[in-house]
Nucleic acid binder design. Sequence first.
DNA 1: TTGTAAGCGTTATCAC
DNA 2: GTGATAACGCTTACAA
Lengths: 346, 346
Amino acid sequence: MVTLADVARHAGVSASTVSYVLSGKRSISEETRRRVERSVAELGYHPNAGARALAAKRSHIVALVVPLRADVYVPIMMQIAISVTVTARQHGYDVLLITNDEGPEGVRRVALSGLADGVILMDVGLADERIPVLRELRTQAALIGLPDDPSGLSCVDHDFAAAGASCADHLADLGHREVAFIGYGSGVYQRHAGYAERTLMGFRERAEERGLRFVHRPCEGTYESTAGTLARILADRPDTTGFVVQNEGAIGPLLSLLRISGRTVPEDASVIALCPELLAEQYAPALTAVTGPAQELGRVAVEQLLRRITAAGRDEVPDDELTLLRPVLTVRESTSQHRSRTPSSS
Amino acid sequence: MVTLADVARHAGVSASTVSYVLSGKRSISEETRRRVERSVAELGYHPNAGARALAAKRSHIVALVVPLRADVYVPIMMQIAISVTVTARQHGYDVLLITNDEGPEGVRRVALSGLADGVILMDVGLADERIPVLRELRTQAALIGLPDDPSGLSCVDHDFAAAGASCADHLADLGHREVAFIGYGSGVYQRHAGYAERTLMGFRERAEERGLRFVHRPCEGTYESTAGTLARILADRPDTTGFVVQNEGAIGPLLSLLRISGRTVPEDASVIALCPELLAEQYAPALTAVTGPAQELGRVAVEQLLRRITAAGRDEVPDDELTLLRPVLTVRESTSQHRSRTPSSS
DNA sequence: TTGTAAGCGTTATCAC
DNA sequence: GTGATAACGCTTACAA
């Protein structure tokens, strides 16, 4: 193993000089710097992580706490995890993966052991049980998701209200008058998941402003539940021509069921999905969709966290930040200008 | 921050005694052990990770190198990453996430810095460029995937040949005589991806043994390519009644296209997918599928790696291991006994 | 069964 | 601009 001392000897300087060359924390003559850098390269020196963490009281590791729940869309989680890792690396940090089955104890463990300098929490619930631990330990953190009380915390999330609003706008722009919002299963609303409620609220408000008549129906996302949901919508409001789907599981079934009911998309019914691009593009017809920038979520979270860590290292009080990322509505093949289904009812 | 010394003072023993109580590396009187454990709990002591790593020359961290390529099925990767993390925790290890955009240098970095005690490589290619680094640094590793030369390495993978063979068996058992294997895009075969070739080989051999007439057709997985692939199959072999699909992207299109061509699944055509359960169950009809146990992959890799780390810690030469995990064929609604499509041709 | 003490490889505070 | 040197908190011979 190559140590700092080896490099120092090889370069003919003291250990502290090598350390300072590497950290850039004091000015070094061009001459020395070059000698040291050459020795580092020649010996293939990599600083020992443990020793560095011990001496500097900073591990240069951030912990990423990922949920295990099955009802989150996994590819997005992965995308976030990867953008977190890549961004962290760009700042000289590594990422430790913590699964939520450790619960709040996991946060306590990595913080108290000095394993991580800070924590990124994914899939944060409104009253997340990990948050009290953060407050108690004064651990630096960035949350992906918006808790009910974000004071003292840095958070980043999609602007779900804006997402809902774009859906209403797009359908209104196309001339639709009767629209349906197919949401998540009722359980999701019962536990007051922020994203579900905020999307619905954004949609509802904009729909009202634009004079849309609409219904909201929860849906579990299975074929059967989607069938039931659609049947009820069409029974209550046979003239519905616009559909917004938030539950990814319901998208495929919805398209099949509309076809079966004799409605062609987009001629007879326009469908907007709230989902990732990948998903939207894999259907036939490709779906007009509102998509939040998942990668950004990870990148912003890392940057928020590192700012906090830096501030705390200088004994400053870190600023709280709240970033809501605007989703993008991409028009594809599943929405079109409203036309009455039956000439008689127009 | 609570240190070992704090605990020692609180319990009225020496620091080493506390250390030994925690590590179990020497026998401790029941009395002392209890006093120490009580102090640990009372003070909320968590050993400092950096100090521990420095003194013990063991970080209790394993690095998991995940691919960034888009053509791997993401939920499975996530499942593996999670089972790796959970299993590692059960053995007192944490997991560091490394993305493959660091390339082989990432492996070098974590190994040489002592950040990780070993490495788990996901999505290992036949001539993976990270492998030479492992050999050069004598880094302990476990590979998920099978390289062309696994000597000196521990590997775990699905038994793809067995998966292919089960498909052939199931179709033969049901009395089918003409079957088609819809594979990955030709690019996948051109780079000799092991999993694609091994599956096909397993299928081919068993199909021949069972006297099946079959064709293999590559398919890119888009709707268009699937349409083209199916059209060619039906043109060449109109009496084909059994289909095996390996490319996940082709499954949805295939089902639609069979329907359009007037074939009902499973009455007129049996379909077996090589895919995760989740995917198989989300189609209508639910698909008979051959699924490899993804979680096992992660668990076995961790156990292989930890055995190697332990052995190397005792200056033993770690044993190489090669584990192939048997996939499971689950019969669902997409396969049934063969019946001739047209009574005349029976 | 327990205690003492010498590292482990950095960083950072002094001093020059 | 550079060099000693004392931490940092833990593990592990070595003693007792």
